[in-house]
Design a protein around this nucleic acid. Sequence first.
DNA 1: CCTTGACGCATCGGATCACTAGGCATAGCA
DNA 2: TGCTATGCCTAGTGATCCGATGCGTCAAGG
Lengths: 107, 107
Amino acid sequence: MNGETLKGHLDLLLLAALRGNPAHGYAVAETLRARSDGDLDLPEGTLYPALHRLQRSGLVTSKWSESTGRRRRIYQLTAKGARAFSARHDEWRAFARVVRSVVEATP
Amino acid sequence: MNGETLKGHLDLLLLAALRGNPAHGYAVAETLRARSDGDLDLPEGTLYPALHRLQRSGLVTSKWSESTGRRRRIYQLTAKGARAFSARHDEWRAFARVVRSVVEATP
DNA sequence: CCTTGACGCATCGGATCACTAGGCATAGCA
DNA sequence: TGCTATGCCTAGTGATCCGATGCGTCAAGG
């Protein structure tokens, strides 16, 4: 999975991973790895800044969890985040459709 | 069509537009606009630097055409460019599949 | 006990990239 | 003579992903 390939679509994936499934960063990465059969393996330098960005935008909230003695930050989708997910999903479908029609046009 | 959305996938679209269809920059933009029903309207500041990049990478060649009295640079896919198209196409399909399986997973 | 590896979070700097804004020039039409 | 479409180019800006690095906890094996 190339770097530039993911660019601009990471938020959609993170929001998808958090849909109805509050989780901490590490678990989000595991979810994405699992759902993609290992194809999508986010480096930490990608994951955490992106989650912070989502929080700054109000799409997720977070709280510390100390249950296991191990410090974790649990992220949860806000209502705005859920709406953003739908919007991003629509944009993705539109984009994928455009790419298909451009690429699969008979030359 | 957002900027970040396109990021990393522009080359694929340009290579697709030039597949078996040598053309100058302006015509490439028209092709993309047509194939996407107007959804994809590349600014010139996006189009030309990208074409130059493809040329620097050896994926296309170009020559000036003065046929109409109007100066145009005709771009043509190289063999390497054709291979790159296939590779990028495969990458795109893989990426689209990953996004689908991540996004459409039942939460 | 102590090392190793998995877990877990954070940030800085680098590199890439699409886009805005600006410039330049020709052709055709009103 | 303007105006519009055609046609090309580039410097600078902002957004973004990623590699590197640092810090800290916990369980297992030697």
